[in-house]
Design a protein around this nucleic acid. Structure first.
Length: 986
RNA sequence: GGGCCGGUAGCUCAGGGGUUAGAGCACACGCUUGAUAAGCGUGGGGUCGAAGGUUCAAAUCCUUCUCGGCCCA
C-alpha cells in the first residue's frame, strides 16, 4: 500500500535565488547599480557626523594592469574600510596613484625609439606631457579594474601625485626642508652607467654573472706606530675592479681580525724559470722577496688559489691584531708619480671588513664604493672625481689620465692591461686572474655599471634639526691631487650616528621615536622598519631626470649657499598650483630673481619619487581638498616591501616637517606566491592574473581568497586553492539560499519574543552573540582570516550541520502559526540579517544580491551597520547544556552509523537511542532538552545506572507519511502523526 | 653575500614545553531524495622542512642545515 502524497502540504523553502552564482556576469551589473546610485556618496551621507576612521591609501604606480599584488592589497584595504564602516564609523576612502618617475619615462622613451625619434630632441615640456598622458591612461585602466574588484572608494576624485595641486604640495614640502636647513648638496657614490652617462636607480639595475680580473696588490707600509716592525712590509689588498686602484686613498682593516706576515717571492722569479722569459734582471734574491701581510684566516686560501708558488706559508714572520694597524700609513704603488699618488694612504678601521674572501685588507676608493666613501668621509678623506661621466679617467689624471678606454672595459682591467702592467712593473702585483661573480648591469643597455661619486642633494639623518644653516656645495671640478672641499655642515656618514647623534633632535632620532609610538600589525614590522631607519644613510633626494617634481632651489654661484627666501618660495608654490612642474623654467627664474638671476645656479634635478609619495599625507589629509579627511591617519596598509618604501618616505618626510609619523598604525601584508610557494614570474609562466580569476570565478571568490589566507605572511594562490575557495563560497551561498527560502513570506507579525523560544533557538542566539564579539575583535585586529573562518565554522557546524538540520522538521511540517515554527523563523531572520552584514565586506556582490532578493526596493546592504545583537542572548548555562547534548549526538552517531552499515536502518529517524549513565548531573543537565529532536532520531531514553552505556536499535514505530518521523501517534489510516494531522486537517 | 621573516594533513588555517597534534574544505564510503549540480553521517590521511642539542617530557626552547620569501648588495 502506497502512502498518500503529502508533499504539497509541506512548507518547503521557496526562493528565486539561484544556486549557481554566475558571478562573472552578475557582478558587473551590480557594480553598475552602485555607480548609478553613487553608493560611495550615499555611504558618506549615511555616516556623516560619526566617529572617523582615517585610512590613507598608498599610491600604486600608474603603470600597467592590476596584478595579484594590487588585488590582494586593495581587497585588504577595502575590507578594512568596509568593516570599520560596518562598525558605524565614517571611513572615507580616496584612492591614489604615484605618477612621476622613471618607469613611465622609459615607456615614453621606448615609444620614441620605436618611432626612431631621439628623446633629447623633444622639448622637455612636450616629453612631460606625454608622460602625464601615459600615467593618466593607466590610472584610468586601474581605476576600472579596482572597481570591478568591488573596491568602494571616491573614484570620482582620486588623488594623483601629478595633480598640479599635488606637485605644488610636494614643492611646498621640499621648501620646508630647505627653510629648516634639512637639505645639503654633497657627493655620493651612486650606481652610474658610463654607457648611458647617467646615474641609475636601484630598480634600473640588474645583476648578471660575469668574469672580472681579480688582483692582489701590495702596498708598502711606511709608518706603523703600534707595530714598527711592520715598516717596509707590504699590506696586500684584493680587488675585482683593478680600475679603482688609480683612485685608491687608503686601506681598511678590521680591528678584530688576526693578521699574519709571511714571505712572498716576486712573481718574476717564478716566471724566470719559463723559457723565453728573462729573469728578474739585476735584482738580488732579497730584492725579489717581500714581507706581506694578510688575514691569518685567509692565508691558506690565498696561497692555494692565487699565489701557489709565491707565498711562503710555512714561516710566520709576524702575527698581530688589526688594532696594530692603528695610525699606520702605506704608500700607493704608484707613489713615484707624485701629486695625488705621493700622499700617504692611511690604515682605517672598518667594521665591514671580513675574512670571507680577499685578504682581510680592503683598498679604499671613496669615489667608487659606499663603504669606502663612508669610512673615508669619517676620516676627512674626500672623493677626487677621477672618473668622468663617460667612464674614462680625467685627462689630467696623473696615472692613466686620457686613457682612451672606459674603466668597465675588460681590456683595461685585464692581467695584461695597462693597470696590471704598471703595477707589475712597480713590483706591486702579487696575482692577477679571472674571477666569476655577480655584478650590477644597466637594465636598459645591459652594460656594466660602476659606482661613481656625483653631486647630489641629500636630507641629513643625523644633523640636529634647528635654525636654518646655509649649506655649501663641493666645487664641481676639483683638480687632480687637490683637497676637495666638503660642506662643513655636512652630516656624518652612515654608521656614525651612534657616536654622534645620540640625544640630539635629528631626523633619525625623531623617526625612531615615531616608530616606537606607532602600532604595527603584525608587530614584527616595527623591528623591520626600525632596523632600516637605524642603519640607513642620508636620503638622496635628487635625480637627473625629466618626469618629476623639480628641486626648486637656487644656489649662489659664489658661496654655494642655496637661496632661502620665503616670498620667492611662496611665488614658486603658487605658480606650481597653476601650471604644475612645467612652471620650473629659466624664464620663471628670471621673473623670480630679476637682475640677480645670473648670480644663482638654477637646480634642474628632480626629486626622488619617494619624496612625492612621502608627501601624500600632506596633500590628501591636510590640504583641504578632501575635507572629509584630517591629519594624521589612523592607518597605512601596504605590502611588507613598503617598510623601505612608502612607510619610510612618509615617516621621514613627516618627522622632518611635523615631528611625528603621519600614521598611528601600520598594517603590512606579505606577498602572493604561486601554488607551490614560489614567486610568480612571466618567465616561469606561473603568474595568476586577477583579471582572469574575476572572469572565471568572480571578484567575490578572489576577495574570499584574500580574506581567508594569512596575509601577514607570504601566501599562495593557484587553481586548487581557488577551487577550494569556490567550494567554501558555494556553502555560504547555499546557506543564504536556504535562509531566503526558509524566510519566504516572513513578516514582523510572525516574530516571537526570545523568552518564549525553545532552547535550540535561544542557543543559536547565544552563539550569534558570542560570534559577534569574536568578529568585532577580529575586525579590530584586522584578522580577516579569523573573521572568515569564524563565520565559516558557525555556518558549517552550528547552522547547517546542526540547528538547520534539526529544525527542518519544524520549518517544513509545523503549522505556520505554531510558536515553534515562528520561533525558528524569528531566529532565521536574525541570522539572515547578521550574516548578510557580516559577509558584506567580504562577498560584496553576493551580499548585495542576497539583500536585493529579499528586499528588492531597499537601499544597498553596504549602507547597513553591524547587526543588532542583544548581549543578553549570551547564556553560559544553556551553552553548557548544548555542548553536552552535541557531544552525546556525536557519540550516538558513531553507533548509529554502525547500525546503518549493518543495514538495520536507513535514516537515523528510524532508530532509538538508550543511554545509561552514572552521572546524575548529566541527566539533570539534559533534562530540559528534547534529545530525540536534537539527535534526529525516533526517541532517546536516558536512565540512571551503575555503568556508562549507549545503545542504539531500530525503533519499532510507525513512520508519519508527512514528516517522516517515526512516532507512536501515527494514524494507521492517514499515516499521519498527531501534529501533521492537525496541520493537514485542522 | 648581508638583514629580517616563514615551512603543522592534498588545500586554507588553529595549537607556541605536558594525554593518542586539531578544525573546515577536498577525498572515500554510506544515508537521504522535502536545501537535490544541495543536505546529513562515518572514515582514511601528519617522522609538525631536516639533523643535532637542552629537558623527566619538544610541533613548541637552542644550534646548524635546507627550502622559500621580502629588503639590501
Amino acid at each position: 500500500m502506497s502512502a498518500p502524497d503529502y508533499r504539497p502540504t509541506v512548507f518547503l523553502p521557496k526562493t528565486d535565488f539561484p544556486m549557481k552564482a554566475g558571478l562573472p556576469e552578475k557582478e558587473p551589473q551590480i557594480l553598475a547599480k552602485w555607480q548609478a546610485a553613487d553608493l560611495y556618496a550615499q555611504l558618506r551621507a549615511a555616516r556623516k557626523g560619526r566617529d572617523k576612521f582615517i585610512y590613507h591609501d598608498g599610491p600604486p604606480y600608474a603603470n600597467g594592469d592590476m596584478h595579484i599584488g594590487h588585488a590582494l592589497n586593495h581587497i585588504l584595504k577595502d575590507a578594512v574600510v568596509r568593516t570599520q564602516s560596518l562598525l558605524g564609523k565614517d571611513v572615507p576612502y580616496v584612492p591614489g596613484w604615484d605618477c612621476h618617475g622613471l618607469p613611465i619615462e622609459w615607456k615614453v622613451e621606448e615609444a620614441y625609439r620605436a618611432k626612431k625619434q631621439n628623446k633629447d630632441e623633444v622639448p622637455a615640456k612636450e616629453f612631460r606631457a606625454e608622460c602625464r598622458a601615459y600615467a593618466q591612461h593607466w590610472v584610468n585602466v586601474q581605476a576600472g579594474q579596482l572597481q570591478r574588484l568591488g573596491i568602494n572608494g571616491d573614484w570620482k576624485k582620486p588623488y594623483l601625485t601629478m595633480d598640479f595641486a599635488s606637485e605644488a604640495t610636494i614643492v611646498s614640502e621640499l621648501l620646508k626642508f630647505a627653510e629648516s636647513g634639512q637639505l645639503y648638496r654633497g657627493a655620493k657614490p651612486v650606481m652610474w652607467s658610463p654607457v648611458e652617462k647617467t646615474a641609475l636607480a636601484d630598480a634600473e639595475v640588474e645583476y648578471h654573472d660575469i668574469t672580472s680580473t681579480q688582483i692582489d696588490v701590495a702596498f708598502e707600509i711606511v709608518e706603523a706606530p703600534n707595530a714598527p716592525e711592520l715598516v717596509g712590509a707590504y699590506a696586500v689588498i684584493w680587488t675585482t675592479t683593478p680600475w679603482t686602484i688609480p683612485v685608491n686613498q687608503g686601506i681598511a682593516y678590521s680591528e678584530d681580525v688576526d693578521y699574519i706576515c709571511v714571505e712572498h717571492l716576486h712573481p718574476e722569479l717564478i716566471q724566470s724559470s719559463q723559457p723565453g722569459q728573462a729573469p728578474a734582471a739585476g735584482k738580488s734574491l732579497k730584492e725579489r722577496t717581500k714581507r706581506v701581510i694578510v688575514a691569518a684566516a685567509l692565508l691558506e686560501q690565498i696561497a692555494k688559489e692565487r699565489m701557489p708558488l709565491g707565498l711562503k706559508t710555512d714561516r710566520v714572520l709576524w702575527r698581530g691584531k688589526g688594532a696594530d694597524f692603528a695610525g699606520a700609513v702605506a704608500r700607493h704603488p704608484m707613489h713615484k708619480l707624485g701629486g695625488f699618488f705621493a700622499t700617504p694612504r692611511p690604515f682605517l678601521p672598518g667594521d665591514f671588513v671580513t675574512t670571507d674572501q680577499g685578504t682581510g685588507l680592503v683598498h679604499m676608493a671613496p669615489d667608487h664604493g659606499e663603504d669606502d666613501f663612508a669610512l673615508c668621509k669619517a676620516h676627512g678623506i674626500n672623493p677626487v672625481f677621477a672618473v668622468e661621466a663617460d667612464g674614462r679617467y680625467r685627462a689630467d689624471w696623473l696615472w692613466l689620465g686620457g686613457e682612451a678606454k672606459n674603466v668597465i672595459n675588460p681590456n683595461l682591467n685585464a692581467p695584461d692591461g695597462p693597470i696590471c702592467s704598471d703595477l707589475k712593473a712597480a713590483g706591486a702585483l702579487l696575482s692577477a686572474g679571472p674571477f666569476a661573480h655577480s655584478y650590477p648591469h644597466s637594465w636598459r643597455s645591459k652594460k656594466k655599471v660602476i659606482f661613481r661619486c656625483t653631486p647630489q642633494w641629500f636630507v641629513p639623518m643625523d644633523k640636529p634639526i634647528g635654525p636654518s644653516v646655509a649649506l655649501r656645495a663641493p666645487p664641481p671640478h676639483p683638480k687632480n691631487g687637490e683637497d676637495v672641499a666638503v660642506p662643513p655642515q655636512a652630516p656624518l656618514g652612515e654608521g656614525d650616528h651612534a657616536q654622534h647623534g645620540g640625544g640630539a633632535d635629528t631626523l633619525r632620532a625623531r623617526a625612531l621615536a615615531a616608530i616606537a609610538a606607532t602600532h604595527f600589525t603584525p608587530d614584527k614590522g616595527r623591528n623591520r622598519i626600525g632596523s632600516m631607519v637605524e642603519g640607513r644613510p642620508d636620503w638622496v633626494l635628487s635625480r637627473q631626470r625629466a618626469w618629476g617634481v623639480p628641486i626648486t632651489l637656487f644656489v649662489d654661484r659664489k658661496t654655494g649657499d642655496y637661496l632661502v627666501d620665503k616670498s620667492i618660495n611662496q611665488k614658486i608654490i603658487e605658480r606650481f598650483k597653476a601650471e604644475g612642474v612645467d612652471a620650473w623654467t629659466p624664464e620663471f627664474a628670471r621673473e623670480l630673481l630679476g637682475d640677480r638671476v645670473d648670480q644663482y645656479e638654477m637646480i634642474t634635478d628632480i626629486l626622488d619619487v619617494w619624496f612625492d609619495s612621502g608627501c601624500t599625507h600632506a596633500y590628501v589629509l591636510e590640504s583641504g581638498r578632501w575635507p572629509e579627511y584630517s591629519w594624521p591617519a589612523d592607518l597605512y596598509l601596504e605590502g611588507s616591501d613598503q617598510h623601505r618604501g612608502w612607510f619610510q618616505s612618509s615617516l621621514l618626510q613627516s618627522c622632518a616637517t611635523r615631528g611625528r609619523a603621519p600614521y598611528k598604525a601600520i598594517l603590512t601584508h606579505g606577498f602572493t606566491m604561486d601554488a607551490s610557494g614560489r614567486k610568480m614570474s612571466k618567465s616561469e609562466g606561473n603568474v595568476i592574473n586577477p583579471l582572469d580569476v574575476m572572469k572565471t570565478f568572480g571578484a567575490d571568490i578572489l576577495r574570499l581568497w584574500a580574506l581567508s589566507v594569512d596575509f601577514t605572511e607570504d601566501h599562495r594562490i593557484g587553481d586548487e586553492i581557488l577551487k577550494g575557495v569556490a567550494d567554501q563560497y558555494r556553502k555560504l551561498r547555499n546557506t543564504f539560499r536556504y535562509l531566503l527560502g526558509a524566510l519566504d513570506g516572513f513578516s514582523d507579525a510572525e516574530r516571537l519574543p526570545v523568552a518564549e523560544m525553545p532552547a535550540l533557538e535561544r542557543w543559536v542566539l547565544h552563539r550569534l552573540a558570542v560570534l559577534s564579539g569574536e568578529l568585532k575583535a577580529a575586525v579590530n585586529a584586522y584578522d580577516f582570516n579569523r573573521y572568515t573562518s569564524l563565520i565559516n565554522d558557525f555556518v558549517q557546524n552550528d547552522l547547517s550541520a546542526f540547528a538547520m538540520d534539526v529544525r527542518k522538521d519544524s520549518l517544513y511540517c509545523d503549522a505556520p502559526t505554531a510558536p515553534t515554527r515562528r520561533a525558528w523563523r524569528t531566529v532565521l531572520d536574525i541570522v539572515f540579517h547578521a550574516l548578510t552584514r557580516w559577509l558584506a565586506p567580504v562577498l560584496v556582490f553576493t551580499a548585495e544580491e542576497v539583500w536585493a532578493t529579499r528586499y528588492p526596493d531597499a537601499q544597498s546592504v553596504h549602507l547597513l551597520e553591524w547587526p543588532e545583537i542583544d548581549a543578553a542572548w549570551q547564556d553560559a548555562a544553556l551553552d553548557k547544556q548544548f555542548t553536552l547534548a552535541r557531544k552525546l549526538r556525536e557519540e550516538a552517531y558513531l553507533k548509529l552509523e554502525e547500525l546503518r552499515r549493518a543495514r538495520k536502518v536507513g535514516s537515523f529517524l528510524e532508530a532509538r537511542v538508550a543511554i545509561t549513565t552514572a552521572h546524575s548531573d548529566r541527566i539533570a543537565a539534559l533534562a530540559g532538552l528534547d534529545l530525540a529532536e536534537l539527535l534526529l532520531v525516533a526517541e532517546v531514553a536516558i536512565t540512571a545506572g551503575d555503568t556508562e552505556s549507549l545503545m542504539v536499535e531500530k525503533a519499532d514505530l510507525a513512520k508519519c507519511a508527512r514528516c517522516w518521523r517515526h512516532l507512536p501517534d501515527v494514524n494507521a489510516e492517514t499515516e499521519l502523526c498527531g501534529r501533521c494531522d492537525a496541520v493537514v486537517h485542522g
